[in-house]
Measured scan of single mutants.
Amino acid sequence: TGIVNVSSSLNVRSSASTSSKVIGSLSGNTKVTIVGEEGAFYKIEYKGSHGYVAAEYI
């Protein structure tokens, strides 16, 4: 489990890349469940599926 540490919002992406499609966003202080790690990204549970967020902001 981690907490989103941004002042505005954090993009949730379809894969572990900044060039991948943005599938949603999370606001600051949102609690997320981390299920894996790929490079600089965490794989998280997101809306019944999975998404990827930049690990530096969690």
Rank of each mutant, 00 (worst) to 15 (best):
G2S: 05
E37A: 13
V6I: 13
E56S: 09
S19K: 12
T33W: 12
S7N: 10
S27V: 12
K21E: 12
K43L: 09
A40H: 09
A54Y: 13
V6M: 08
N5Y: 08
V12A: 01
H50F: 15
I23D: 01
K43N: 02
G39T: 03
S27F: 11
N29K: 10
T33R: 11
K43P: 01
S17Q: 07
G39H: 05
V12E: 00
E38T: 07
S49Y: 09
S27Y: 10
G28H: 14
K21I: 10
N5K: 12
V4C: 07
V6A: 10
S17Y: 07
H50E: 06
G24Y: 04
S20R: 05
G24N: 01
I44C: 05
L10A: 10
I44P: 00
S19P: 05
V35E: 04
R13G: 04
I58L: 06
I58R: 01
V32K: 00
G28V: 11
G39F: 05
K31G: 05
E37P: 05
E45C: 14
G39Y: 05
V22D: 03
S15F: 08
A55K: 15
V22M: 06
E45T: 08
R13Y: 15
E37C: 15
G28R: 13
S15M: 10
Y57H: 10
S49G: 15
T1Q: 12
K31Y: 12
S20V: 04
A40L: 11
Y42A: 03
S19Q: 11
S7V: 11
S8T: 14
H50N: 05
G24K: 02
Y57C: 15
V32H: 01
N5H: 09
L10C: 15
E45L: 14
A16K: 03
V53I: 07
N11M: 14
G39C: 07
G51E: 01
E38V: 10
I23T: 03
G24D: 02
I34Y: 02
I23F: 03
H50D: 05
V35N: 03
I58S: 02
S9L: 11
T30W: 07
S15N: 09
G2Q: 05
S49A: 13
S25P: 03
E37W: 14
E37N: 09
G28A: 14
Y42V: 06
I34H: 00
I3E: 05
Y42G: 01
N11A: 15
E37L: 15
V12D: 01
I34V: 06
A16Y: 05
I58N: 02
Y52T: 00
A40T: 09
S9I: 11
N29H: 12
V22F: 06
I23G: 01
K47V: 05
S9G: 14
K21C: 11
S7L: 12
G51V: 03
K21M: 12
V4H: 03
G2T: 06
I3D: 04
I44Q: 00
G28T: 12
N5L: 11
A54P: 14
T18K: 13
L26V: 09
S14F: 12
K43H: 04
S20E: 03
T18I: 13
I3G: 04
A40D: 12
S20M: 03
N5V: 11
G36V: 04
V22E: 03
A40E: 12
T1R: 09
I3A: 05
E38G: 03
V6C: 15
L10G: 03
N11S: 13
L10N: 02
K21G: 08
T18C: 15
S19F: 10
S17A: 08
S9C: 15
E56N: 08
S9K: 12
Y52N: 00
A54I: 14
I58W: 04
E37D: 06
N5S: 09
E37M: 15
T18P: 14
V4W: 04
S19N: 13
I23S: 01
F41I: 02
I23R: 02
S49P: 01
S17P: 01
S25Y: 14
A40N: 11
E45H: 08
K31T: 12
F41Q: 02
S27T: 12
S8F: 14
E37G: 07
S9Q: 11
T18H: 15
E45N: 08
S15G: 12
L26C: 04
G48K: 06
Y42L: 09
G51N: 01
S8E: 11
V4R: 04
A55S: 13
G36K: 06
S14I: 13
V22W: 06
K47C: 14
G36D: 07
S8Y: 13
L10H: 03
I58M: 04
V22Y: 05
E38S: 08
I34C: 04
G2E: 04
T33I: 14
A55V: 11
Y57E: 07
V4S: 05
G39L: 05
E56T: 08
S49M: 12
K43S: 03
E38N: 06
S20Y: 07
Y57A: 08
H50I: 14
K31L: 13
S15P: 01
G2H: 07
Y42N: 01
I3C: 13
I58K: 02
Y52C: 00
V53D: 00
V35I: 14
S25N: 09
S27I: 11
A54T: 07
Y42M: 06
Y52I: 00
G36Q: 06
L26G: 00
Y52M: 01
S27L: 14
T30I: 08
Y52K: 00
A54M: 14
I3N: 06
V32Q: 00
K47Q: 12
G48C: 07
T18N: 13
Y42P: 00
Y52Q: 00
S15R: 11
V12N: 00
Y46I: 03
F41T: 02
S15Q: 12
G39S: 05
F41K: 01
T30M: 10
S9R: 14
V6S: 13
S14G: 08
I44R: 00
E37V: 15
S19R: 11
L26E: 00
V12T: 02
Y42Q: 01
G24Q: 03
Y57K: 07
S15E: 13
E38I: 09
S49K: 11
I58P: 02
G24E: 01
H50C: 09
A40V: 09
H50V: 14
V12R: 03
N11D: 15
G2L: 07
E56Y: 10
Y57W: 09
E37Q: 15
